[in-house]
């Protein structure tokens, strides 16, 4: 088997994503695409830790917000170049992930306890940022409009789209690479049975720490990109619970612990949100209610998410051989 084959489908999807912004000039479509890709990217972060590692975080907003605020403030307070700030924001996100992971995993937190503690961290971040003048409190941070590629700001939405495709592409490739590595095998082993993993020589603490750092880095990148696109971040947009929920919904609805799950889930969520908007107008919270409903449906009828449904349908097509693996 050639080494490139596992990446062929990823390249195909990315090529499609890269072509899309070139063939449309609809701002609504392009905007929808950017927003969807941001959710997907945040979801890729969550998927590494939750989908592959089985550690369900309820507080990925902590990383998203860290990425967004770090990227914005490093430019505004310290005059850093936007690209440099972006890189630093990702690194800081990884560090925050490592810190939260160290504290939670060292004390042996698992399952709902881990979920609650991550939720608590995100909430503490939100409250602190909301109250602190350094972060400009509830008003949030506005980035100065200065559209230059060197400043990581673009005049055209299509350019943002292309950059988002690149970022999601990195997440896709990273996910596939993890899947095919020893670290990935250990991560899945930790998800399936920590005791057995330890018996086979897996340092489960180290594996989880590595996973949460990588996970946080990806989600922080989503946050940093968000602020470059909207030029605005505030405590609710950065650290709000709905950010954490979207980061976990995308992979769960798309397909937990799969390479394309978060992307498929983010697209499904976006379409669902549009649908809610059309159906119920501006009714606040309508999209969240619909997200909740879809989550219930996925958990009740399609544990493997949309991707598993697609696969099941494919198997029913007559004439196609049924694969041995479920």
């Amino acid at each position: 088997m050639s080494a490139a084959r596992p990446y062929a489908s990823i390249l195909a999807v990315l090529a499609l994503g890269a072509v899309l912004p070139l063939v449309t000039s609809s701002n609504i479509l392009l905007n929808g695409m950017v927003v969807t890709l941001i959710v997907a990217l945040a979801g890729y972060g969550w998927n590494l830790l939750g989908g592959y590692g089985g550690q369900f975080s309820f507080g990925h907003a902590a990383f998203f917000g860290t990425g967004a605020y770090a990227c914005a403030l490093l430019q505004q307070h310290y005059g850093l170049n936007a690209w440099v700030a972006f890189g630093a924001a990702v690194a800081l996100g990884a560090a925050v992930g490592g810190g939260i992971g160290y504290l939670s995993f060292r004390s042996g937190l698992r399952g709902s306890y881990f979920a609650l503690v991550t939720l608590a961290f995100a909430e503490v971040f939100r409250i602190v940022v909301n109250a602190s003048p350094f972060f400009n409190g509830a008003a949030g941070v506005l980035l100065k409009l200065d559209t230059r590629p060197g400043n990581l700001q673009f005049a055209s939405r299509a350019s943002y789209c292309e950059l988002a495709v690149v970022l999601v592409g990195i997440a896709l490739v990273a996910t596939r690479a993890v899947e095919r590595s020893r670290f990935g095998a250990y991560l899945v082993a930790v998800r399936e049975n920590e005791n057995s993993a330890r018996a086979l020589g897996v340092d489960t603490f180290k594996v989880k720490l590595k996973a949460i750092s990588l996970s946080a880095a990806l989600t922080a990148a989503a946050g940093a990109f968000y602020v470059q696109y909207f030029l605005l971040i505030n405590p609710e947009l950065g650290f709000g619970t709905s950010v954490s929920i979207q980061a976990l919904l995308a992979p769960i609805i798309g397909g937990l612990g799969t390479v394309f799950g978060p992307l498929v889930g983010a697209i499904a969520l976006h379409e669902l949100g549009e649908f809610a908007q059309g159906l119920l107008g501006g009714l606040p919270g309508a999209d969240m209610a619909l997200f909740g409903l879809s989550l219930i449906l996925v958990i009740a009828f399609a544990r493997g998410g949309v991707l598993s449904l697609v696969q099941a349908l494919r198997w029913r097509v007559p004439g196609k051989p049924i694969e041995a693996r479920p």
Partner: peptide
């Protein structure tokens, strides 16, 4: 205590990775 969702080969591979 098998890794329930993994295949037989993948289960053993976790050990082999050591």
């Amino acid at each position: 205590q098998p890794f329930a969702k993994l295949s037989v080969a993948e289960n053993i591979a976790v050990g082999a990775h050591l």
